[in-house]
Design a protein around this nucleic acid. Sequence first.
DNA 1: GACCGGAATAAAATCGATTTCAGAAAGTTT
DNA 2: AAACTTTCTGAAATCGATTTTATTCCGGTC
Lengths: 353, 353
Amino acid sequence: MAENRKSGKRVTIYDIARELNLAPSSVSKALNDMPNISDKLKALVKAKAKELNYKHNLNAANLRRGYSGIIAVIVPKINVAFFSDVIAGMEEVCAANNHRLIICQTDESYQKEKQAVETLINQNVDCILISLSLETKATEHLQEILENNIELIQFDRVLSDIDCSTIVNDNHEASYTAVQHLLDQGYRKIAFFGGPSHLKIYQDRKKGYLQAIKEASLVVPYNYIVENAFSTESARAAAVDLLQFQDPPDAFFTISDYAALGVLKAGQSLGLEIPRQLGIVGYANESFTDLISPALTTIDQNSRELGRQAVGIYFNHLRHKKDVQDTPEPVSVSVHEVVKSSLIVRDSSQRNK
Amino acid sequence: MAENRKSGKRVTIYDIARELNLAPSSVSKALNDMPNISDKLKALVKAKAKELNYKHNLNAANLRRGYSGIIAVIVPKINVAFFSDVIAGMEEVCAANNHRLIICQTDESYQKEKQAVETLINQNVDCILISLSLETKATEHLQEILENNIELIQFDRVLSDIDCSTIVNDNHEASYTAVQHLLDQGYRKIAFFGGPSHLKIYQDRKKGYLQAIKEASLVVPYNYIVENAFSTESARAAAVDLLQFQDPPDAFFTISDYAALGVLKAGQSLGLEIPRQLGIVGYANESFTDLISPALTTIDQNSRELGRQAVGIYFNHLRHKKDVQDTPEPVSVSVHEVVKSSLIVRDSSQRNK
DNA sequence: GACCGGAATAAAATCGATTTCAGAAAGTTT
DNA sequence: AAACTTTCTGAAATCGATTTTATTCCGGTC
């Protein structure tokens, strides 16, 4: 009976219609649970669809509908805990709203980022969520997304010279809290390892650090602030340098756990006791942070929740659009959300217990 | 001039054709660099396309062509080093062959795996690469992939009761080598923590272990072999048990680094010196393995290369199909490849240096 | 029994690119 | 200059589902 599927010919609604002596349009409506179709017919059609092993052809449907039910997320690296957790949160909400999530990776390359965007526009995705590569300083490619009527939402690493929704952590506050914690522990000579300063999140983290330092009426030597110690190796090298300085720091606050790891290695290689002689606080709650010893104090970014809220912005707009679908130009208002993060105190910074 | 794009109307080849006084078919051919179109015309069309900010509509193209240029990979977890490296390798080759890669995550759930497969079939992807969830024991959903004329390639965690290409590591040999190494280091009472035995890779790893034990004319107590100590916590608990046994092991070979980490924690909590009193070898070269102390001896699965070769199977078939596109039923022959892995010796198992 | 309202179903247009096939233009060969 | 290629270009069909518009078929009403 299910002989229709021979030699790679796909089963279509026309096949179902023919077998059931119906019009294709009725089949389509039945399968989509639209009104004006009797329940009896719906059941009949669905049964036949299953019997013939019918598969909905999304290309055809999307072409007609003009939207795809697909949301795309572009991240620098999927194997960084922050991003994979964010993605997990996004997947959760997408699944609940019956949408698909496509994941793209840029490997911190601006070229790859542009290419991914191009592909996704061609793909007709409904929404693009992006956290920019470290190399990205221009936003023309993001502008193109908007020009193609695709909703754009930036998260974490955002650039503000484009009008779209954004969602980030409370970077300023979290950094302030982290440095406060170091001060509480009696550290006074706190160095800061930052990230590329064209990205707001790294500026904010630096500002949080500076505010805490300032409020404690401390003055730090200029070389305590290193702008671009992002990777383990660059941080290690910079820390070794700094720790051999005539007036070395007694603590480090770094904007990435990988950098913190570099500092830790530097400290250990110089025979420093951690946390007694050297306090370290990282950023991101990378999974290795509580496996190494001493376990690393770090900031948990609540990343899964951030992912959930990020796609949530899209679904809110979607619901809103449906309600007022008469408006000619859908005024989708950009929102800017902030997700709270929290300090996780571990051994690397805790010297008075 | 580029006024055609107002109010969300997409630029199509018809728009280009109209502006250039050409037929849409000529535009299509020019954009696709097909023969029978003069270079002059191609240049003209491409220039106009850029000017109008034309975007190729993949939904339309794919509907017509019947294929999508999209390859999908389904993995249990993207944040496991093995899988994210495999994906990186796949992306590399996909990009080189001008295909797109979609990533799906099952979170070790059979339900989610089935749903992902369903979605991808609807999406009309050209090829699905899959590493099964731990829960997966049936293959009906995989069968469906084949029935829809989508190429199926299983990697790493494969089930053999379905006819498709597979690619795995030399699990037997690698495990054998790992246990050999422990024997070389003088360990004699080697325990084994395995994985779900319905998956061939875990059977093979166990066989490799058993072969090495047997060849050394050793006999291990039955409780040295634990079938399902996969996670850190289950392995830790099992190891604590075993180490307090009247005749405790002096070494562990586990089929996952996470399990090895559990063993390490167990050993440390019982005050055992590693590697002097307890040797440990893990599996997968997870990134944390050389961050913890002692650094963990483990097996590197050459995962990026495995990813490259996995999609390579598809592109080989594709090239082959193009050559013989006359054959009515394309006889795509299943291939079965093996990727060599290598032992990485670190501190956790090295007691005679 | 003519008429109406509503529900259920059908017919046909549509989305945008590709592809087949036919035809026009240009160039070669005798 | 006729005949014949070889290039190039255009018209129209097509992929499969959705959607708008048009029927048909009811029971019910006066």
